[in-house]
Computed example of a mutant assay.
Amino acid sequence: MTSFAALPATRTAPTAEVSGPPVVLVHGFASNGAADWPAERWADALAAAGRETIVVHLPGHVGGPAVSSADEVTTTQVLGRIAAAVGDQEVDVVGYSLGARLAWDLVSSVRVRRLVLGGLSPMEPFGAVDLAAARAAVQGGPQPTDMLTGIITSMVAQQDATSLLLLVEGLAREPFNPAAGAPTVPTLFLAGEADPMAQGIDHLVGLVPDARLVRVPGDHLGALAGEDLRKAVFEFLDI
């Protein structure tokens, strides 16, 4: 069996009597755990409700390890490292954007009680990124001419662009393929009403038995920051 080095994770212990399994939070691309899951909105409230929180820090992002090769950040590798961080305990998992893309497949290697997938696109964008153009642009070269590559370039430009573009390359080698298998645990989908990235999420909902979709106000970033999304997550996780 292949062993994986655990990704770094920030753990917050419950401050009240334990009321349920730990809650794993997985952030989006070019974001980070603190930005997507501010402690005052998530870990502190979960701790007060008797739940441990595990915020996983993805490769190439703030709090996560730098990336030296695309080989070390294929989807299989990243999922294995998330699973190693979680361990063999039963957990609830909440993923947003890239975090949701990974959480979809995480159920095959982690004991998940309930699953929340927010801001999830049914499409695999990373395979269409012109990596050569993106790498040239972050080194001061011309901006990419295609929209998607330009968006990715702008997202990584002020961060560890080398690591993040290697992550894009690695994940693209094993594209998101929801038709290959869907979660079978109780699942809640969340999407911002003005989020273009979540277009087509209804198709994904239809692949998951008894899944539910809740639309909340906001675009891709605004939905995650909104109180409606957090309330829906907490209700679904019995918090």
Rank of each mutant, 00 (worst) to 15 (best):
Q158H: 10
Q158T: 13
Q159F: 01
Q159G: 06
D160F: 00
D160C: 00
A161L: 02
T162C: 00
T162K: 11
S163M: 08
S163V: 03
S163L: 07
L164Y: 07
L165D: 05
L165T: 13
L166W: 03
L167S: 02
L167I: 05
L167R: 14
L167C: 15
E169L: 08
E169S: 15
G170W: 12
G170M: 06
G170R: 11
G170Q: 10
L171I: 13
A172L: 04
A172T: 09
R173K: 10
E174W: 05
E174I: 01
P175I: 03
N177I: 05
P178Y: 04
P178I: 06
A180R: 09
G181R: 09
G181T: 07
G181P: 08
A182G: 15
A182R: 11
A182N: 10
T184Y: 04
L188Y: 12
L188W: 07
L188E: 10
F189L: 11
A191Y: 00
A191T: 03
A191W: 01
A191S: 14
G192S: 00
G192Q: 00
E193A: 15
E193G: 02
E193C: 03
A194L: 09
D195Q: 09
D195W: 09
A198Y: 01
A198G: 10
Q199V: 13
G200Q: 03
G200M: 07
G200C: 04
I201G: 05
I201F: 07
I201P: 12
D202T: 12
H203K: 10
L204T: 08
V205D: 01
G206E: 04
G206R: 05
P209T: 07
D210P: 03
D210Q: 15
D210E: 14
R212A: 13
R212F: 02
R212S: 14
L213H: 07
L213K: 07
V214R: 10
V214N: 04
V214W: 03
V214C: 05
R215V: 03
R215Y: 02
V216Y: 00
V216G: 01
V216R: 00
V216M: 02
V216E: 01
